[in-house]
């Protein structure tokens, strides 16, 4: 059962020399209760794709194609949807977690306030109910001592805890879909491991569906069920995780894995240097 269907999504950016495609007709289907990875390097268009789903693109970008959210058998077209429709979906049906938790949390509101505001707005909960739920949520994402954490401010937490709180805020209204844009990139590996475990649990236990955008194939290998590899606005390869890492079809995927220490296709450092010097890699041609 699919929950989010992206069909022929095209994103153009207005430039002085006319529109240019940032995302050039991609298709992606997010299944319910799965983690779908969207991998790619900076500039591949993976982040704008995530932003387009929620209608968060800057005005200089135009979209075409279709993004359909399918909840309770009701299909909602998100591209070009009116403001009110999007407002009802953002945070409520589709929530987002960003790379840097210190900028996605409001620095001057207590954690409790940030959690309950959403619930009271979207779910029309009373003060007390919202508070109880907020506490339960913090417990869910394993923030230690939830009761006192509610009263604290974001800067009083470590980076990893802040990302947990940001996830809790995203989950406040029980969204069906979580868009996670490089959620662990700014974190240390030991902290990253915890966040990945949390994501997996949320998907397996609570039936959340996650679109995981990251450049880190190690992260993909740990948690993604499906992986789409994006490059220059196009999905070059999309496959179940195991298959992608063991039997990649596209040359670009192979080149990514070749440069990835510990992968099955890893090449020796000497070979990588030789390639770099021969400028055969895409980056050198740029």
């Amino acid at each position: 059962m699919s929950i989010l269907r992206i069909t022929n999504l095209q994103i153009d950016v207005r430039t002085q020399g006319g529109p240019r495609a940032v995302v050039d007709g991609i298709d992606l289907t997010l299944e319910r209760g799965r983690i779908h990875g969207l991998a790619g390097e900076s500039g591949s268009g993976k982040t704008v794709t995530a932003l387009a789903i929620l209608g968060l693109l800057p005005e200089s970008m135009t979209t075409s194609g279709s993004v359909v959210l399918d909840t309770n058998d009701v299909d909602t077209e998100l591209l070009g949807a009116p403001r009110q429709v999007l407002a009802g979906i953002r945070g409520r049906r589709i929530a987002m977690v960003f790379q840097d938790p210190s900028t996605s949390l409001h620095p001057q509101l207590s954690v409790g306030r940030q959690l309950t505001d959403h619930m009271r707005h979207h779910l029309k909960l009373g003060k007390r109910d919202a508070r109880d739920r907020a506490r339960a949520l913090l417990e869910r994402v394993r923030v230690p001592d939830p009761t006192s954490a509610l009263k604290k401010f974001p800067h009083q937490f470590s980076g990893g805890q802040r990302q947990r709180i940001a996830i809790a805020v995203a989950l406040a209204c029980e969204p069906d879909v979580l868009l996670a844009d490089e959620p662990t990139t700014a974190l240390d590996v030991t902290v990253q491991a915890g966040i990945l475990q949390l994501l997996r649990e949320l998907v397996d236990d609570a039936g959340l569906s996650v679109l995981l955008v990251t450049h880190d194939l190690g992260v993909m290998s740990a948690v993604a069920d499906e992986v789409a590899v994006m490059r220059a606005g196009v999905i070059v390869e999309s496959a179940p995780r195991q298959q992608l890492f063991t039997d990649p079809q596209h040359a670009y995927t192979r080149s990514l894995l070749a440069a990835l220490p510990g992968s099955k296709l890893e090449e020796s450092p000497e070979a990588l240097v030789a390639e770099l010097l021969n400028a055969t890699r895409t980056e050198a041609i740029e």
Binding site: A21, V22, S42, G43, G45, T47, V48, A232, G233, T282
Partner: peptide, 15 residues
Amino acid sequence: MTRPLLTKDELEPTR
């Protein structure tokens, strides 16, 4: 080799 659709500068949303 085709030209990349977009240079990095244009697609670095967070920075």
